[in-house]
């Protein structure tokens, strides 16, 4: 149980997928114009990262490892993730129109979110078991969501600020992300295991 808490804190805060590992920058900057869309995107990412962690763990341990085909990891994971996203989209569309209205347009974008493939590979290379992988995926998604929501709130205010022509849009967004990452750097010496008394 404590091990899971350690994974939760370290994946969500200390090794934040966006601000410490630099994964998922494109959607981070692409869909952070408004706080509401950023919230929708975060929910979708948490959902997909958790599901992808579980499925890719099963693929690795029940298909690739027994057959000795671990070198096919990249190909099989990206295919599984693409299929999973498509499947989730269809299931949500059929069973929960409300959720589909909220998440629908973000789901296709998620296949290209490198945080999703990143969490799958990191889970395997960290030797997590199935439950740990699921927690790691959810925590990674939550951390990414926290970062994009903070960033979207900053960007909404930033729209009113006078910014020089050359720095408008993408450049100022990257510099702002840098400052946000600096704030998250405060977590980097944080020893989670000691903090919760492990």
């Amino acid at each position: 149980m404590k091990q899971l808490l350690v994974i939760l804190f370290s994946q969500a805060l200390v090794n934040n997928y966006m601000l410490a590992r630099i994964l998922g920058t494109c959607p981070f900057i692409g869909v952070s114009q408004q706080f509401e869309t950023a919230t929708g995107m975060s929910l979708a990412v948490v959902f997909v990262m958790t599901m992808a962690s579980v499925i890719t763990w099963l693929v690795q341990h029940f298909i690739l490892n027994p057959l000795g085909m671990a070198y096919l990891q990249t190909v099989s994971f990206i295919l599984v993730i693409a299929a999973l996203v498509q499947l989730i989209e269809m299931v949500i569309k059929k069973n929960s129109p409300g959720l589909y209205r909220a998440l629908g347009i973000y789901l296709p974008l998620i296949t290209t979110n490198c945080a999703v493939l990143g969490v799958a590979i990191i889970n395997i290379s960290s030797n997590y078991n199935l439950v740990e992988s699921a927690v790691s995926g959810a925590a990674g998604g939550l951390g990414w969501g926290l970062a994009i929501m903070l960033f979207a709130a900053i960007r909404e205010r930033q729209r009113l600020a006078p910014i020089s022509q050359a720095m408008q849009g993408f450049p100022i967004a990257l510099v702002t992300t840098g400052l946000l990452a600096m704030a998250f750097l405060g977590f980097s010496g944080f020893d989670v295991a000691r903090f919760i008394g492990l």
Partner: peptide, 15 residues
């Protein structure tokens, strides 16, 4: 650190 990466890239695109 990632911090330096984001800021350098932002300033470089600005330039």
């Amino acid at each position: 650190q990632p911090v330096g990466g984001f800021i350098t890239l932002g300033l470089a695109i600005g330039a």
